[in-house]
Simulated scan of single mutants.
Amino acid sequence: MGITRTHLSVSLDGFAAGPRQSVEHPLGVGGDRLHTWVFGLQAWRAEHGMTGGEVNASSAVVEEVQGNVGAVVMGRGMFGGGPGPWNEEDPWTGWWGEDPPFHAPVFVVTHHPREPLPMAGGTTFHFVTEGPEAAVEQARRVAGDRDVLVAGGAATVRDCLNAGLLDQLDLHLVPVLLRAGERLLDGVDDVRLEQVRAVEAPGVTHLRYRVLR
């Protein structure tokens, strides 16, 4: 049976996104600095339909966290399109173009209903209005023996931690200070974690935690 897990890049001061997130700055101002370690990797580029790239100590980590995913859960902020009801005249289809990198069903937690959105490469976005618990339940049902990845953003990961839905937390700790934005663990209840590994790599340290019940 698969597990429910997440992996996110965080700054040394605990932020998973920079301030003032918008269509122009989906990661917040300065938030792209959290991900420079991964953008040049061959493993990441291949997942996004690009060729070339670097191989280093992060490569095996990225291949592992991207692998064995049977379904994905994300928040409305990560899917994008702005707050409020969906714009039916110019429907938002995500940040990723016609062939999103998920290649699995994606369950978007939102307050506003919308019909499923099929895309190329096996990705279909389903919009869940009953909260993260319902989204994870639906994702687990279709994932079968594979894992459910809670892809973000930070608020959705916090909600899943507080609801006891996550089994594993992979954090990519980046040596930058954002000083503002959205902290990953602000408002998280007394969740007990057990560190199970640490991997040093250029520009990042990969930390894995098991969530204890």
Rank of each mutant, 00 (worst) to 15 (best):
V196R: 15
A135S: 05
R213M: 06
E47P: 00
R208G: 12
F107P: 08
G80R: 00
G84K: 10
F39H: 12
G94Y: 14
R76G: 11
F107W: 11
D13N: 13
E182C: 00
Y209K: 09
L171M: 06
F107R: 03
H25V: 08
M50C: 04
A16D: 10
E88C: 06
P202K: 09
H103E: 13
R33H: 02
E89H: 03
G40N: 15
R179W: 06
M78Q: 12
A139E: 11
D147A: 08
Y209Q: 08
S9M: 04
E24M: 14
H111S: 14
D147P: 10
T110L: 06
F39R: 07
L165F: 03
G30L: 03
G152N: 09
A151H: 15
E47W: 02
G97F: 12
G121I: 08
L165H: 03
D186F: 07
H206M: 05
M119R: 03
H35S: 13
W95N: 05
E133W: 01
L41K: 02
V106N: 08
D145K: 13
A154R: 07
G152E: 01
T124V: 15
E133T: 05
T129H: 07
M74L: 15
H172P: 03
V62N: 00
V150D: 00
D90R: 14
E182L: 00
S58E: 09
G82F: 04
V23F: 09
H111D: 11
G67L: 05
H126W: 13
V157L: 10
E137I: 00
G28H: 09
Q21E: 14
V108A: 00
G153C: 05
N162R: 12
C160P: 12
A104L: 12
P132A: 11
E64I: 04
W95S: 11
F125G: 07
